[in-house]
């Protein structure tokens, strides 16, 4: 799977590991910044806001903005503050239930 991404790796290819994003399997460079790695393989948006449901993706890449949140092991975390490790299971953060006005 190579979805169209507007982010390109310019360096040498490094060692890859397999992670899951939702139901799809991704091959990402081991040890690299998770947000960057997801951008390269075309993951976008990363999440939807709990209020309006608007799509969001990485904005600051320095742990300040929280627009790159993903859910890992049931915890919503900033992808830009994580490194790619083998076997990560990543989900889009669950949004507020519809019954919750």
């Amino acid at each position: 799977m190579k979805p169209d991404s507007t982010f390109r790796e310019i360096g040498p290819q490094t060692d890859r590991v397999t992670v899951r994003f939702g139901s799809s399997e991704l091959s990402l460079p081991r040890g690299e910044n998770l947000a960057g790695a997801l951008l390269v393989v075309g993951v976008m948006p990363f999440r939807h806001t709990p209020l309006s449901g608007a799509p969001r993706g990485p904005f600051c890449m320095m742990g300040a903005c929280y627009d790159c949140l993903v859910e890992i092991d049931g915890i919503n975390r900033q992808a830009c503050m994580l490194q790619v490790t083998e076997g990560l299971q990543i989900e889009r953060p669950s949004i507020k239930g519809a019954g919750n006005a």
């Binding site: 507007t6 982010f7 390109r8 790796e9 310019i10 360096g11 690299e32 910044n33 960057g36 790695a37 951008l39 390269v40 976008m44 948006p45 990363f46 799509p55 969001r56 993706g57 990485p58 904005f59 600051c60 890449m61 320095m62």
Partner: peptide, 19 residues
């Protein structure tokens, strides 16, 4: 999505070699 700070683009380039 697709709007970032210029600093973010630079971080991608520095840390991950992503343009």
């Amino acid at each position: 999505p697709g709007v970032m700070t210029a600093g973010a683009a630079q971080i991608l380039l520095k840390q991950s070699g992503i343009a």
